[in-house]
């Protein structure tokens, strides 16, 4: 049977009919690579052109690259502050989300919690909820606690709305820890807390890092909450602050907005390079599939 397979594939490999799909696929992939990489490269290129070079057209290579647009957006348009704010929101918000999610994930992965169907239902509700539908009451709640237009208020909201996905991701990870490990601890007379703190938590560090990174990126991308719950520019995350780039004043020459949007994604690019394997390795689908 294996001979037949080999023969068949050898014959197919040589024939034109088997080269054709490969050729078509490769061509298609080249086009796709251009479509996905092209815009990014063009924008980076635009961002290092001087005003005069910009007029030479979008495809002209920058002859004398300049970082002036970056200096202008960093100091002139306050991108330093915006990036710092986004960093605060993403760091603290993700920490809160993961912290809230740890024990629930532990319970749902290791124990037979009664009513877990309902808990999963709630988690999915939190996950799927279109945020626009709860803006008004959240706005009201934050106003009641004097948390409108404060960093703390937005961090809390980010933390709570990040929690459901974190529970699923961490639970998915904790399920892979073999039960024998904690069985031994229970036999020794350990309490739930000790098992959680001394056994499961240290073993879950890789999962926590993945969850934290995904949440960090999610908060960095987030826009609606920041737009509605904040008023003063000194609190804006970069997604809200960079809206001003879309105005005729800055769109006369494209290098300034281009530099602004490149800067706004730079921390994520770095994080992406560092963690690409972890965050794209099907961890998300793993969380859903359990």
């Amino acid at each position: 049977m294996s001979d037949a397979t080999l023969n068949a594939s050898a014959m197919r490999r040589g024939s034109f009919a088997s080269v054709l799909p490969k050729l078509a696929a490769t061509l298609l992939m080249l086009v796709l690579a251009a479509v996905w990489l092209g815009p990014l490269l063009l924008i980076v290129m635009t961002s290092i052109k001087s005003n005069a070079e910009f007029l030479a057209g979008p495809f002209a290579l920058p002859r004398s690259p300049t970082i002036q647009p970056y200096i202008d957006v960093w100091f002139g348009l306050g991108f330093g502050t915006l990036l710092r704010n986004s960093l605060i929101y993403a760091t603290a918000g993700s920490a809160l989300a993961v912290t809230l999610a740890l024990v629930p994930a532990f319970a749902l992965s290791r124990m037979n919690v009664p009513g877990r169907k309902w808990i999963f239902g709630l988690l999915l509700t939190g996950l799927m909820l279109p945020q626009q539908t709860v803006l008004i009451p959240l706005y009201d709640t934050l106003r009641t606690f004097h948390l409108l237009d404060t960093k703390i208020g937005l961090i809390i909201v980010h933390g709570v709305y990040g929690m459901p996905l974190q529970v699923l991701i961490l639970r998915g990870f904790m399920t892979t820890i073999p039960p024998e490990i904690e069985k031994a601890a229970y036999v020794e007379g350990a309490t739930d807390f000790q098992v959680f703190w001394k056994v499961i938590l240290p073993l879950s560090v890789p999962g926590i890092l993945v969850g934290y990174t995904l949440n960090f990126i999610a908060i960095w991308k987030e826009f609606v909450f920041g737009l509605v719950f904040l008023n003063s520019e000194e609190n804006f995350p970069v997604t809200v602050g960079m809206l001003k780039l879309n105005s005729d004043r800055y769109l006369a020459v494209f290098n300034l907005p281009a530099a602004g949007l490149v800067i706004s994604q730079l921390p994520i690019v770095i994080l992406f390079i560092l963690t690409y394997r972890q965050i794209s390795g099907g961890n998300l689908s793993g969380a859903v599939k359990g």
């Binding site: 990126i217 960095w220 991308k221 987030e222 826009f223 970069v238 997604t239 809200v240 960079m242 809206l243 780039l245 879309n246 907005p257 602004g260 949007l261 706004s264 994604q265 994520i268 994080l271 992406f272 965050i279």
Partner: peptide
């Protein structure tokens, strides 16, 4: 991983 605001701009 990009924010849609940056993508939009």
């Amino acid at each position: 991983t990009m924010s849609l605001i940056a993508v939009g701009l």
